[in-house]
């Protein structure tokens, strides 16, 4: 219903960023914990893989994802068989792509927080009767609160600003894959500068508010 207004693409972007952030928290938390504590020889390889999206141009990631997620790709074909729908040019496909694209922005702050955690606190929790999982949620996670906050804000912001990957994997379908960055690009292409201005200003304001709240909360956390 918002497709004609500037709100539609913005809301879609927010929905994508929120979903991606939630999925990433579930994936990145155990991964970051493992990276923070493992002595495995696989660690450098895994770390490099996780960090790849920081270095690679979004178009490269988008290109490979298009091939893998497309109806003839390994994952894409399986998805079509199971659900009957194609992954590419769909919201689900965008979520998968965004998770890969934003993974390092969730993993790295968490890994840093987990590494700086005093393991003696976790030991104390264990001797007080907490199972390993219990000790994680009751001691390790609260003591890593700033790491979680950074991970949430960075993955959210990074997904919000996504352009190249969306263009390659999602295209430009209103209400499904037409996120705000694509919409702005569209308006500029069609020389509709007024609409581009409106959306850009909206995104600018939104991004500023999100970052500002992060820094305010971070300051409170570190004061404690």
């Amino acid at each position: 219903m918002f497709e004609t207004t500037s709100m539609g693409p913005l809301l879609l972007s927010i929905r994508l960023a929120t979903t991606t952030t939630l999925v990433l928290l579930i994936i990145a938390t155990p991964l970051a914990w493992w990276l923070a504590h493992t002595t495995s020889r696989w660690k450098p390889g895994i770390q490099a893989t996780v960090a790849l999206p920081i270095v690679l141009p979004p178009t490269v990631i988008g290109f490979y994802l298009l091939i893998v997620l497309g109806p003839y790709g390994t994952i894409g074909r399986w998805w079509v068989e199971v659900t009957g729908d194609a992954l590419t040019f769909s919201f689900t496909g965008l979520v998968i792509a965004s998770c890969i694209y934003s993974l390092p922005f969730a993993v790295q702050p968490l890994q840093v927080a987990f590494q700086s955690l005093d393991r003696r606190d976790v030991e104390a929790a264990r001797t007080l009767g907490a199972s390993p999982l219990d000790a994680f949620f009751s001691v390790a996670a609260p003591l890593s609160a700033h790491g979680f906050l950074n991970a949430i804000v960075l993955s959210f912001a990074h997904t919000l600003g996504e352009f190249g990957v969306v263009l390659m994997v999602g295209g430009n379908i209103p209400g499904e894959t037409r996120v705000i960055s694509i919409a702005i690009y569209d308006h500029v292409e069609s020389l509709d500068y007024a609409a581009a201005h409106q959306m850009s200003a909206l995104l600018l304001a939104f991004a500023f508010v999100v970052l500002l709240s992060m820094f305010v909360i971070n300051r409170r956390l570190s004061r404690r």
Partner: peptide
């Protein structure tokens, strides 16, 4: 028995209180 199932109390050299 895993640590949390042993009915012990452990006082370490440092207090190790949970700061949060």
């Amino acid at each position: 028995l895993p640590v949390h199932q042993r009915a012990i109390g452990y006082v370490f050299q440092e207090p190790r209180l949970f700061s949060h």
